[in-house]
Simulated scan of single mutants.
Amino acid sequence: MARYTGPKTKKARAFGEQIFGFSRAFEKKKYPPGQHGNSRRRKQRSDYALQLMEKQKAKYTYGLLERQFRNLFEKANRKEGVTGTVLLQLLEARLDNTVFRMGIAPTRRAARQLVAHRHITVNGIVTNIPSYELRAGDIVGVRGKSQGMAVIRENVSAKSDVRKFPWIEFSPDKMQGAFISYPEREQIPEKINEQLIVELYSK
Rank of each mutant, 00 (worst) to 15 (best):
V142E: 00
L95R: 06
V151R: 06
I197L: 12
I125L: 05
G148N: 08
Y48Q: 02
I180V: 15
A116C: 05
R112H: 12
K159A: 11
G144K: 15
R135S: 07
I168E: 03
N155A: 11
E17C: 04
S131E: 11
E92H: 03
R118P: 11
V82F: 09
R112C: 09
L88N: 00
R24D: 11
I125D: 03
I168V: 11
Y201W: 14
P106F: 08
L72M: 14
F100Y: 09
A158T: 13
A136L: 00
F20G: 05
F15G: 02
R41H: 13
K11T: 03
N77M: 08
L50D: 10
Y31G: 03
M175E: 04
E17F: 13
A178F: 06
E190N: 13
E154V: 09
P172S: 07
P32Q: 02
I152N: 05
Y4I: 03
K11A: 04
G34R: 00
V126D: 04
E190F: 12
K75H: 13
R41L: 10
K29Y: 11
M1A: 10
F73T: 03
G103P: 00
A14K: 08
L114Y: 13
D138E: 06
R109L: 03
R143C: 04
Y48C: 00
L72Q: 12
L90S: 11
E80C: 05
A49G: 07
Y62H: 03
V115H: 09
I168Q: 05
T127R: 08
K28L: 11
E54I: 04
Q187W: 15
H119M: 14
Y132G: 01
P172L: 02
A158H: 12
V151N: 01
Y132V: 09
D173M: 08
P32W: 02
S181T: 12
V86Y: 03
E190R: 12
R118V: 10
Y4G: 04
Q44V: 14
E154W: 05
V122C: 01
D47Y: 11
E190C: 07
A14T: 04
I120N: 01
N71F: 04
S46K: 07
I129P: 08
Q56K: 07
T98H: 02
R112S: 09
T85R: 13
G137I: 05
G84H: 07
E17L: 09
Q176F: 07
Q18L: 07
N128H: 08
L114G: 00
V162P: 06
R67Q: 14
E92Q: 01
L95K: 02
A76W: 12
G21V: 06
R94H: 01
D47A: 13
I104K: 06
A25K: 07
R163L: 14
N77W: 10
V140T: 00
G137D: 07
R143Q: 11
P189W: 15
K10F: 02
L52K: 14
A14W: 07
D96N: 08
L95Y: 10
T83K: 15
K164D: 01
L52R: 14
K75F: 12
V198L: 09
A136D: 00
V162I: 11
D173H: 15
T85D: 12
D173Y: 11
R67M: 10
N128L: 01
N71R: 13
S202N: 15
A12C: 10
I192D: 14
